[in-house]
């Protein structure tokens, strides 16, 4: 049985280490915060200028001056700090953030990622995604294995405009996990969702990877 969105987030959370500073993207990546393993302390960064994101506020306590990068209301922790957008991206670009979890529309076998634009259709913009993939130490992508039409999303080369070139370290889909030790190596299939076979993965993947 393929992993649910929550299962995928829980799998990504296994990559967290004590003391990590982490930036989570919008969608499934946000759910990773619900699965931080016991005994591990991580600090979540929001690129609009905050370290130490707390849980959603109680109804009635929401504050328009306190939002995350997805423009949702959040709360602060005793350890929180605020700073400007330029300081925030100095942190990101400067390699001080340990891990980021992002969604994607396409991943190429060489680690290219496309997640910001569909020419002629979606013109929302890249937000902070290009800065995150360029600057954060480890990049994990969490995405459905195939598109809504059933087309593979882990492919030989991206067809959509890129967000970053040769930047992805790990891919977690509803079927499996791919990982590579460095940016010169191919991705390797390292884990399967319960009941999913390596043949199932191969049938839905056009990218080259090792097993």
């Amino acid at each position: 049985m393929p992993w649910t969105r929550d299962d995928m987030a829980a799998r990504a959370a296994k990559e967290l280490k004590d003391g990590y500073y982490v930036n989570l993207g919008i969608g499934i990546p946000t759910l990773v915060a619900n699965h931080v393993p016991e005994g591990i302390e991580v600090t979540l960064q929001s690129e609009n200028g905050m370290l130490g994101i707390g849980p959603f506020p109680f109804d009635g306590d929401e504050d328009p001056d306190l939002i995350n990068a997805g423009k949702q209301t959040i709360s602060e922790l005793a350890s929180s700090s605020y700073f400007s957008s330029s300081d925030s991206f100095a942190m990101i670009r400067g390699g001080h953030i340990d891990l980021t979890v992002l969604g994607a529309m396409e991943i190429a076998e060489n680690g290219d990622i496309a997640n910001w634009m569909i020419p002629g259709k979606m013109i929302k913009g890249m937000g902070g995604a290009m800065d995150l993939v360029a600057g954060v130490k480890k990049i994990i992508v969490v995405m459905e294995h195939t598109s809504k039409n059933g087309d593979p999303k882990f492919i030989p080369a991206c067809t959509l405009p890129l967000t970053g070139k040769n930047v992805v370290d790990m891919i977690i889909t509803d079927l499996c996990v791919f990982q590579r030790p460095d940016h010169d190596s191919p991705f390797k299939l390292i884990e399967l969702a319960p009941g999913v076979t390596a043949e199932d993965v191969a049938a839905k993947t056009t990218a080259h990877y090792t097993t």
Binding site: S88, R93, M130, G135
Partner: peptide
Amino acid sequence: YLAGELEVEFCPQGTLAERCR
């Protein structure tokens, strides 16, 4: 934007912040 009435320069968020700084 789609009608060509508005010009847009998409700039990565951190690059925009640093361009201003």
